[in-house]
Design a protein around this nucleic acid. Structure first.
Lengths: 339, 339
DNA sequence: TGTTTTCATGAAATCGATTTCAGGGCAAGG
DNA sequence: CCTTGCCCTGAAATCGATTTCATGAAAACA
């Protein structure tokens, strides 16, 4: 392995000087600096980061903890984080938590002992950040808040935009609107359902019929089960508000099975459907700011890594509630940002 | 920071013994080991991985370099790698190369200087592995070979299955089959086009009409441009073999624009279309073994990390060329594996 | 019982870069 | 011409765990 000692010998300087040239923390005479660079190039020198990190007790790795990288929403968020991180000289360590607090905690141990420079976390219900905070590893939450902790957080404006989307269904003439949302305790699921309930209350003057608000895991399979349940009700809904992209896909699939595609039954998919080719007319797709969530979270984390000591900040990003356009129009939008 | 010296002092042993207890490489008397564990617990000791790595010159990080994590094919591959890696106690560092050899090389520098335990690489054309091989960082290529290097490689059976898929179009009665493939020099693009050409030659007894074989970047936008070109030919094709999922989506979108959806014009999408909801009848989707590619690559890499010194191995995984079923059938297949 | 082997252990060297400290060279000021 | 001070520079200490080496004790063998 080529070390700074080899470079130093070749360049005729001391190892300390080589280090100074590469870390740039002190002044080195131009002639020597050139000699060092030349020697480094000739020897194809790559500094050993472990040695550097041991000494400086720092690292250039950000842990990105998401429930499931296969969900295009999180894929896009991760991609955005990686872009910002790379720009700033950081690498991204990918951690799938599977929405499982135990797994999340295991990863947190790894992150702390690594130690990583910081963590961007989509918290699972029951998340525990004690370890990271004790060890003062900065944490930024994205998409959801971490219950019981005061850390920087970036979320989408779930409740208001869910209400808006639901109102659009009423505007389109639907009257009995159901909601399929995610698990109890998952913030996005709860907020979106709350938004739906708010719009229903506004429109009907009464809280929604409890059997129209139903929960499922954020998967296509479980979503289908839930939508079937809804459509099998004695008084089935004439429109469905689906609280994420998986559930939106599930709704469309069940409705397709039964020949009830929009506009027969109205559908809102909260979150884009990537690569969707031929969306039926009358599907309303809202555009979650996945990329912006990632960018913003990464930027805030970098600020913390650079020593920012302000109290915890909370940012809420707007959700674009797309107009109820033609299938093709919406396809293009969904495609463009590939949410 | 709590170090092994603190633990040693408290447990009344030497730092060497503490190290032995934690790394488990040598025997320590039970009584002392207990004392060490107890002291470690009391002090809440977490070993510093940087120090360990510096000494052992190893790490528990695998670099995963893919062209674009947003392509569901690579997302799934990455997920599979992460699953295997986690099982074995490794973490995954995510690197988007953007199909750009310069960016790939930058990441390779990071990986080498990290240094990571190994690299799983989807090579860009013009990839350069010298750095990694010099530094004896194990590399496994996935999805494509690295031109000019002898390293472990896992690929899909692109040529044969492209030929099979093309034959299915002939069987369905299409006669003038075009091919939209990826950039020149990208192995998957070349092999898939070769498979298409082979089937055309077999069927017509002559090499394919050159203007029917067209190249595009592996993006929806550029794919649309290419497909438009094809459909604007004086003698347009009556079927399209699209060499990856993005190009498949592009083909369907252009055909939809023009009212020529299958079965009017036949389509093969080589690679699944995730979350596709309402595939038109007559779209043939082949299922790339993304998950298996990832699993296999990760397993082979772990073997190398553990010191395996055999000559480079090459594994080819089969591609399932789905039957031309009803839209819904295919939807379920595409969904299930979310390629 | 005497000899050899095995085993657990601590002291100290080691990994490779960073950083402190002290000294030498040089310019400015008296 | 002699200080004072600044800037570069190299020697050596340092980060925290691992590992080699030497040692002494215990176990195995004859």
């Amino acid at each position: 392995m080529v070390t700074i000692y080899d470079v130093a010998k070749r360049a005729g300087v001391s190892p300390a000087t080589v280090s100074r040239v590469f870390s740039g923390h002190a002044n080195v005479a131009q002639a020597r600096a050139d000699a060092v660079h030349e020697a480094a190039r000739e020897l194809d020198f790559v500094p050993n980061r472990n040695a550097r990190r041991l000494r400086t007790n720092s690292s250039e790795i950000i842990a990105m903890m998401v429930p499931d990288i296969e969900n295009p929403f999180f894929t896009l968020m991760t991609r955005a984080v990686e872009d910002v991180a790379r720009e700033a000289g950081f690498s991204v360590m990918l951690c799938n938590t599977n929405e499982d607090p135990v797994r999340e905690h295991e990863y947190m141990r790894v992150a702390v002992s690594e130690p990583v420079a910081g963590v961007i976390l989509v918290p699972s219900p029951g998340t525990n950040l004690d370890l990271a905070l004790e060890r003062s590893v900065p944490v930024v939450c994205a998409d959801r808040h971490a219950l019981g902790y005061e850390v920087d957080t970036v979320v989408a404006d779930n409740k208001d935009s869910s209400a808006s989307a639901t109102r659009l269904l009423y505007d389109a003439g639907y009257e009995r609107i159901a909601c399929v949302t995610g698990p109890d305790g998952v913030e996005t699921a709860d907020m979106r359902m709350a938004g739906w309930a708010l719009a229903v209350q506004e429109h009907t003057g009464a809280p929604p019929d409890p059997c129209l608000g139903i929960r499922a895991a954020y998967t296509v399979e479980d979503g289908e089960r839930a939508v079937r349940l809804l459509m099998d009700l004695p008084q089935p809904p004439d429109a469905i508000f689906a609280a994420n992209n998986r559930l939106g896909a599930a709704a469309l699939r069940v409705l397709n099975e039964r020949g009830l595609l929009p506009p027969t039954v109205g559908v809102v998919s909260f979150g884009g459907l990537p690569l969707i080719l031929l969306a039926p007319l009358g599907v309303l797709i809202t555009h979650l700011p996945a990329r912006e969530l990632g960018h913003q979270a990464a930027r805030m984390l970098l600020e913390r890594i650079n020593g920012l000591a302000a109290p915890a900040r909370s940012v809420t990003l707007p959700v674009v509630v797309g107009g109820e356009g033609s299938g093709i129009d919406m396809i293009y939008k969904a495609q463009g940002s590939a949410e």
